[in-house]
Amino acid sequence: TTYYDVLGVKPNATQEELKKAYRKLALKYHPDKNPNEGEKFKQISQAYEVLSDAKKRELYDKGGE
């Protein structure tokens, strides 16, 4: 599973699309609303952290993490 899959976006997604997808999923899986989905929330946050940063995203796209 790639970070793009976690957020449900395509690899060519814009920053705005990433932000929108992250917010939607973060609300859905937030531990306050969904106590059993803490791990999913962490995955979503990690994916967004990497993909929202241009340098980290470039490194990730080249095969790094």
Rank of each mutant, 00 (worst) to 15 (best):
T1Y: 14
T1N: 13
T1S: 12
T2M: 06
T2V: 05
Y3R: 01
Y4P: 00
Y4R: 01
D5T: 08
D5Q: 08
D5I: 06
D5R: 06
V6W: 10
V6M: 09
V6F: 06
V6G: 01
V6A: 06
L7N: 00
L7W: 01
L7H: 00
G8W: 03
G8A: 05
V9I: 08
K10H: 12
K10F: 08
K10L: 12
K10R: 11
K10P: 13
K10I: 04
K10V: 06
P11N: 08
P11T: 08
N12V: 05
N12L: 06
N12M: 06
N12W: 14
T14M: 03
T14Y: 01
T14L: 04
T14C: 04
T14K: 04
T14I: 03
T14P: 04
Q15L: 14
Q15Y: 13
Q15K: 08
E16H: 09
E16R: 10
E16A: 11
E16Y: 09
E17N: 04
E17Q: 10
E17I: 05
E17P: 00
E17M: 08
E17R: 04
E17D: 12
L18E: 00
L18C: 03
L18W: 01
L18P: 00
K19F: 14
K19S: 14
K19N: 14
K19P: 00
K20N: 15
K20F: 11
A21K: 04
A21M: 04
A21F: 02
A21S: 05
A21L: 02
Y22E: 00
Y22C: 03
Y22H: 03
Y22L: 03
R23P: 00
R23I: 15
R23D: 15
R23M: 15
K24H: 09
K24I: 13
K24L: 13
K24Q: 12
K24M: 14
K24N: 11
K24V: 12
K24T: 11
K24W: 10
L25I: 04
A26Y: 15
A26R: 11
A26L: 15
A26H: 08
A26P: 00
A26D: 02
A26V: 14
L27M: 13
L27R: 11
K28Y: 10
K28G: 05
K28P: 02
K28T: 08
K28I: 13
Y29T: 04
Y29P: 01
Y29V: 04
Y29K: 01
Y29Q: 02
H30D: 11
H30G: 13
H30I: 05
H30L: 06
P31N: 07
P31K: 06
D32V: 10
D32A: 12
D32F: 08
D32P: 13
K33C: 13
K33G: 08
K33R: 14
K33L: 14
K33Y: 14
K33E: 10
K33N: 15
N34F: 08
N34D: 08
N34T: 07
P35V: 07
P35Q: 07
N36S: 11
N36I: 09
E37N: 14
E37Q: 11
E37W: 12
E37T: 12
E37D: 13
G38Y: 15
G38S: 15
G38D: 08
G38N: 13
E39C: 10
E39W: 13
E39L: 11
E39M: 09
E39V: 08
K40F: 10
K40H: 10
K40N: 07
K40T: 07
K40A: 09
K40W: 11
F41G: 02
F41Q: 02
F41C: 04
K42D: 07
K42E: 08
K42M: 09
K42S: 08
K42Q: 13
Q43F: 08
Q43W: 10
Q43R: 09
I44H: 01
I44C: 03
I44A: 04
I44K: 01
I44D: 00
S45H: 13
S45A: 12
S45F: 12
S45N: 12
Q46S: 06
Q46A: 10
Q46Y: 10
A47N: 00
A47F: 02
Y48C: 03
Y48P: 00
Y48D: 01
E49I: 09
E49M: 10
E49N: 09
E49P: 01
E49G: 07
V50S: 04
V50L: 06
V50F: 09
V50C: 08
V50R: 03
V50K: 04
V50P: 00
L51K: 00
L51S: 00
L51I: 03
S52Y: 06
D53E: 04
D53A: 04
D53K: 04
A54E: 11
A54Y: 10
A54K: 12
A54P: 15
A54C: 10
K55N: 11
K55A: 13
K55F: 10
K56D: 05
K56F: 07
K56T: 09
K56G: 06
R57N: 03
R57E: 02
R57Y: 03
E58Q: 09
E58K: 07
E58I: 07
L59G: 06
L59E: 15
L59V: 10
Y60S: 03
Y60C: 03
Y60G: 02
Y60V: 03
D61P: 03
D61A: 03
D61H: 03
D61C: 04
D61Q: 03
D61E: 03
K62F: 07
K62I: 08
K62W: 07
G63T: 13
G63F: 15
G64T: 14
G64P: 11
G64H: 14
G64I: 15
G64L: 15
E65R: 07
E65V: 13
E65A: 14
E65Q: 12
E65N: 13
